[in-house]
């Protein structure tokens, strides 16, 4: 079969010189053309993309858990149907991304193994718990809003299959964000207790949402290379600022206060200034010490292990039918 990359990169072959291949690769990137699965690419480009796409896929898969937690307790059939559709989308996004990672030579089963053994990471945001139903709305508004900010530029990523996956995902994320915001508007029109619930949830999710853009530019060693390869189009801080500027008017329209006393309009920069992020919290959560790290991975592992007999039965059924033909 010929749609996948060869297992041995050309560059690793001792008799092949990679110089013309590298020049062709650089030229393709320079011309803003897309790299496609069977093109020669530098090993580091391949490894960077596999790592990024895998982490992204894992985030979608783990991201089903915080909201899935509320499916059985959604307050109406309408909200339950919406939440089910949204969580199903997250699964779909994970699968588009695993599919893109496989075009680079990654193996699906290996990626799952790396997630449940903790060798590969996922977004730290999903290690926070969903304590109230308002969290479902705030996740749609802030967490998916931040994800959209991050993902829209990835639709122009130099790697074709990733960019195409992101286009599909961004279209669907728009539903995610809007259903969340609508949910919150509904609660804000409700009782004082419901309004308090929205504010309390916003207080908990605001700072972790800002951390979703990753460490500050000065502390993000891979950014320069990823930008020169056009995997990334903007720095972490640029995207974070864009998110803050987009979100402040949304918070005002909703009637909630973002929990940052330093948040104010800066006319000179035509942007909002905001307070210092607690990066020690970010690092702790990344290190595995967030409120739900162990629970999230254990749940994923349990689902995988308990599904083993289904995968085996389906494979046995398929084999039996092949043999019967």
């Amino acid at each position: 079969m010929t749609l996948r990359p060869p297992p041995t990169p050309h560059g690793a072959h001792p008799e092949t010189t990679t110089e013309p291949l590298e020049a062709h690769f650089e030229h393709t990137i320079e011309a803003d053309q897309r790299i496609e699965p069977r093109d020669w690419v530098p090993e580091k480009y391949r490894a960077t993309l596999i790592r990024q796409i895998a982490q992204h896929a894992h985030s979608e898969i783990i991201g089903m858990q915080p909201e899935g937690n509320w499916i059985t307790r959604a307050p109406s059939l309408r909200r339950k149907a919406i939440l089910l559709a949204k969580v199903q989308d997250e699964a779909g996004h994970g699968l588009y991304l695993y599919s893109a990672a496989e075009t680079l030579g990654a193996d699906r089963r290996d990626l799952t193994e790396r997630l449940i053994s903790g060798k590969q990471k996922y977004s730290s945001i999903f290690n926070y718990p969903t304590l109230t139903f308002a969290d479902v709305g705030v996740i749609g508004w802030l967490v998916d809003g931040a994800a959209i900010c991050n993902q829209v530029p990835l639709c122009r990523c130099s790697y074709g299959p990733y960019a195409r996956g992101m286009i599909r995902i961004c279209k669907e994320e728009s539903f995610h964000q809007r259903q969340g915001y609508e949910l919150l508007m509904t609660m804000m029109r409700g009782t004082d207790a419901q309004r308090e619930m929205v504010q309390e949830s916003t207080n908990r999710w605001w700072w972790p949402s800002l951390m979703m853009f990753g460490p500050p530019d000065g502390d993000s060693p891979n950014t320069a290379q990823s930008m020169s390869w056009k995997i990334k189009r903007h720095t972490n801080d640029e995207l974070r600022q864009r998110f803050v500027d987009m979100t402040v008017p949304q918070a005002e329209a909703l009637g909630v206060t973002l929990p940052d006393p330093d948040l104010r309009w800066n006319a000179e920069r035509a942007s909002y200034d905001f307070g210092e992020i607690d990066w020690s919290e970010f690092k702790e959560v990344l290190r595995g010490n967030g409120p739900c790290n162990a629970q999230r991975v254990a749940h994923r592992k349990r689902a995988h292990d308990e599904g083993a007999w289904v995968r085996e039965a389906a494979a046995a059924y398929a084999r039996k039918h092949r043999e019967a033909v």
């Binding site: 559709a85 199903q88 989308d89 779909g92 699968l95 588009y96 599919s99 893109a100 496989e102 075009t103 699906r108 299959p161 195409r164 996956g165 995968r311 389906a314 494979a315 059924y317 398929a318 039918h321 092949r322």
Partner: peptide, 21 residues
């Protein structure tokens, strides 16, 4: 895109669920 399935019939079902929601 692509997906994994045990056989052709399952592949069609998964494709419907994954790519035509």
């Amino acid at each position: 895109g692509s997906l994994h399935a045990a056989d052709d019939e399952m592949a069609i079902r998964h494709a419907r669920d994954l790519y035509t929601r």
